[in-house]
């Protein structure tokens, strides 16, 4: 279960070495070793509670392993779509999407705003002055996905991003998102095997019983 870690001088390594993680008495990951090949799409599947979210959070540095080591290359810049939307309720969709790029101003800001509007239109989201608290659950989900894919990140983590979306919206969103993520390292967790059709030659992983293995 290994893959290359360096692309030229850029270090995009992402790996777990003998990682264990428990919450209280519940052991979620047990001696997990995995290397995620850079600039490829990795689809992680497994039943609910199997540790997919924990694995992403460990890689993102949001959790510390009880034992073992999480290796992140020095050039890894992450973006993530969490299971919850995690949006700033009082800000507009565009302001939320732009949040990972807080320093934009002048012409660069105008260019990015135009890009945001294009992205939102492609994902069937209307651009207006409403704060996101006034948006529906599906609309908020799309804002969270766009925030992740439009971030200046080379490694994107998606934690069941399409959950709860209807088929037509999923098709529209993925038609826009799939080409954008194609040349970045992507870790995509899902229950739904149908998600695989959106990716070109993804690497499949199975997360179950505290173990992670490539299929």
């Amino acid at each position: 279960m290994s893959a290359g870690s360096h692309q030229g001088c850029v270090d995009l390594t992402l790996a777990l070495q003998d990682v264990c993680k428990s919450f209280g008495g519940l052991r979620v990951l047990e001696g997990v070793t995995a290397r995620f090949e850079p600039l490829r799409t990795h689809v992680l599947m497994g039943p609910s509670g199997s540790g997919k979210t924990t694995l992403l959070r460990l890689l993102a540095g949001l959790e510390r392993p009880d034992a073992g080591e999480v290796v992140r290359g020095s050039d890894v810049r992450m973006g993530m779509t969490f299971q919850e939307d995690r949006l700033c309720e009082n800000l507009t969709a565009t302001a939320n999407i732009r949040l990972p790029r807080p320093r934009l101003s002048g012409e660069a800001l105008e260019r990015f705003l135009a890009y945001e509007r294009e992205a939102m239109a492609a994902c069937d989201l209307s651009v207006d002055a409403r704060p996101v608290r006034d948006l529906s659950g599906g609309q908020r989900r799309r804002v969270a996905i766009l925030r992740c894919v439009l971030a200046e990140a080379n490694t994107l983590l998606f934690d069941e991003p399409l959950k709860g979306m209807d088929e037509k919206t999923v098709e529209a969103v993925m038609a826009f998102v799939a080409p954008l993520v194609a040349e970045r390292t992507v870790l995509w967790t899902t229950h739904d095997e149908r998600d695989l059709r959106f990716f070109n030659d993804p690497i499949l992983w199975r997360v179950e019983g505290g173990r992670v293995c490539a299929c």
Partner: peptide, 12 residues
């Protein structure tokens, strides 16, 4: 706290 975690991740 989830928003702050999101900021950590996106380096805001």
């Amino acid at each position: 706290a989830g928003l702050l975690e999101m900021c950590d991740l996106f380096d805001v």
